[in-house]
Design a protein around this nucleic acid. Sequence first.
DNA 1: CCCTGATTCGC
DNA 2: GCGAATCAGG
Length: 193
Amino acid sequence: MSWTDDRVELLKKMWGEGQSASQIAKELGGVTRNAVIGKVHRLGLSNRSGGGTSAKTEAAKPAPETKAAKPAAKAKPVKPSAPKAEPEPEKPVAVHVPHTRKAIIPAGQPLPPQPSANEISPEALAKVSAIEKKAKRLTLMELTERTCKWPVGDPATPDFWFCGLPVQAGKPYCEAHVGVAFQPMSSRRDRKR
DNA sequence: CCCTGATTCGC
DNA sequence: GCGAATCAGG
């Protein structure tokens, strides 16, 4: 397969839409994701401009050493990683409070934040509902590093299970559940005084 | 282990 | 120009 004008155009389009290289390669057919990435670079649109997703602006390497001489001493340049001060409220796994049970939470204690009690995008919820039909229904011990750890059901009930669908990129949940687990930010100023 | 993009280099 | 192999990371 060659990069016809048509295919290049589709490549540009999909890349602009934030599609992954593998996705694009699959769509195009006859090429691998490497080919796509290589082409993207050659086209000079390596950076997804326009406020895309994670735009990696890799700083220029001070020493573009050749591959021939790279023993093991990896000169680590300075890492100007800005200190992220994001108080992201990560929800602990398996701490979902069963609404039906009554004696698990000590009396007088404030309830831990429940994700389901929040106002989540209806679309995200629908996505979750849909995804839960396909869930693998894993038990706690079946969970691995790459299975979605989203709990479903009442922990005090036989039909309690974890989503178990493949997670993505180090996140604890699958794509759908990440959507509801990590709230952007909202409905926090109800503490209006 | 799955995925992602980035880079290199023989072709 | 092309893309597999490799690198680097989530």
